[in-house]
Amino acid sequence: MFAVQFRRDWLSLMRAKDEAINPLVFLFLAATLFAIAFGGEPQRLTGLAPAIIWVLVLLANLLSLEALFRRDFEDGTLEQLVLLAEPPFAAVLGKVAVQWCLSGVAMTVLAPMVALLLNLPVGVLPALMLGLLLGTPALSLIGAVGAALTVGLRGGGVLLALLLLPLYLPVLVFGVSATLDTMAGVGAAAQFYWLAAISAMALTLAPFATTAALRISVEQS
């Protein structure tokens, strides 16, 4: 079921590429705004760059999560998924995996370019990318719960941010702190373990919560 759903969503994604790319463009645009706003003093940005990048990654992730279930909800595919997929959490996991490829993986790959805009030293890039790779699965998985809860609602976007950002805090803290510690020349193994642990916990619990949330949302339509 995981593979079936993954293939299906991947195909849909490829046919609506522009929609999928927008959150990534947002990431670049917002980073550029920061760089411009700090004007002629790029060295002042260096210390802040990890925080800026991580916060922007969080926000860009929210933007792409909002669309995770919306289309399926509107055309009724979600009803069929809740009714017919066995087990439904495998299908949910498939959908989240596609979303992660587009947000987490894509942002990890793009992170070096964003980092250069913000004057982050090249030596820190591996730590930044590793942190993103380990932390973004948790963002997508926890985010899916929120997206499933808000899918049918008016004003779902702002609500989604309100529900999810407090829950994203640990990932932000450990991600930024890993990059900063690497920059300071201190090892950051502990933070990476934490990020991996949070993602692993989200992987075991979030699909079930998402399935339950989808049921609640589908019942209201």
Binding site: V4, Q5, R8, L11, S12, R15, A16, R71, D72, E74, D75, G76, T77, E79, Q80, L83, L84
Partner: peptide, 27 residues
């Protein structure tokens, strides 16, 4: 055990009918 066909068809506009139905072959 039932099939449900609601007001909405459960057919994704981005995918062809064949791609839409393929996953249900396993039923």
């Amino acid at each position: 055990p039932c099939h449900y066909l609601g007001h909405r068809n459960g057919i994704s506009a981005l995918l062809s009918p064949l791609e839409n139905l393929k996953p249900f072959e396993r039923l």
